[in-house]
Simulated scan of single mutants.
Amino acid sequence: MDRVPVNDAIIYSLARLVDDAQKDRRDPSHSDIEFQLKRAALIHADPNKDGPPVGKAKRLRIVLNWAIENDIAKAEQLTAGIISSVQGCGGFRDSSPNFVGVDAIADLAAALRSEGIVLGEDGSISPVALDSLSGRNLTQALRGYVRRAKKGIEDAALVVGTSKDLMEAVAAHVIQELWGSYPSTANFPSLLGQAFVALEMATPEQAPAQDEHQRCRMERSLYETACSINNLRNK
């Protein structure tokens, strides 16, 4: 993954991975962090650029707190880059002199999971497999999708892709909860259609009735909009 969702808990936990103020020096170095700042085009927010130097943890927190308010896409890119740097330095390997510690890794893993991201013991990052979740855990993961879409509102590709994934996951969740199982091989229009039927919502397959409620017209439009988003995401 070249981008990772960011929130306040993730920023704090991530900064702990590079903080060596109370211990012997360990990598990633200030130079490594600067490389990631330049790569994410966030060097202008670096407090070490013009002012007196600050520690690595504070340096990272300052940049990410600025980016989370002003350019979330760059914040997500920097987060992924820092995790990659720590991984490359052996920060997730307990036999390495750069090992960041079990607690620091566990805290970051917990913060990332709330945003739908799995942090492996080796530092690898991947999206939560929604198929492996159910009930409250799945609901929380879906909320993470919603938060990410809201934060990336100016990133059209992110919003379209996240919206499609969210709709597909919610449709499967609805069918699973109401019917006990869902067809894992169904295409998007079929899966969505079944979710609409399960919720007694109208789809374009159902001809309008003369005395039907006005919401039915809206529901058919919502179905068509969702399918259009799916087509746009595929392109």
Rank of each mutant, 00 (worst) to 15 (best):
D2T: 14
P5Y: 05
V6A: 01
N7D: 15
S13Y: 01
L14E: 01
A15T: 10
A15E: 06
R16Q: 12
L17V: 06
D20E: 05
Q22N: 12
D24P: 14
D24Y: 11
R25W: 14
D27T: 12
D27Q: 12
P28K: 00
S29R: 05
S31R: 13
I33R: 04
L37Q: 12
K38W: 08
R39E: 10
R39A: 14
A40W: 00
A41Q: 13
A41I: 07
L42A: 08
I43N: 13
D46G: 08
N48P: 05
N48H: 01
D50A: 11
P53G: 09
G55H: 09
A57E: 09
A57I: 01
A57Q: 02
K58I: 10
N65P: 05
N65G: 03
W66A: 08
A67D: 08
I68M: 09
N70Y: 15
D71G: 03
D71L: 00
Q77Y: 07
L78Q: 00
I82G: 07
S84A: 15
S85A: 13
S85G: 04
G88L: 02
G91E: 04
R93L: 09
R93Q: 13
R93F: 07
D94L: 06
N98H: 10
V100G: 02
G101V: 02
V102W: 15
I105H: 12
D107C: 09
A110L: 07
A110I: 03
A111D: 02
R113H: 14
S114R: 15
G116S: 07
E121D: 12
I125A: 10
S126T: 14
L130T: 13
R136Y: 11
N137Y: 12
T139I: 12
T139S: 15
R143G: 14
K151F: 11
A156T: 11
A156L: 12
A157R: 13
S163D: 05
M167C: 07
M167E: 04
A172W: 01
V174L: 06
V174E: 06
I175W: 10
Q176F: 06
Y182W: 07
P183F: 02
N187I: 13
P189D: 02
L191D: 02
L191C: 07
G193H: 03
A202M: 04
T203S: 09
Q206W: 00
A209L: 15
H213M: 04
R217E: 09
R217M: 13
M218R: 15
E219S: 10
R220A: 08
S221C: 10
L222R: 00
Y223L: 14
Y223N: 13
Y223Q: 13
E224S: 14
C227M: 05
S228R: 14
N230S: 11
N231E: 12
L232A: 13
R233S: 11
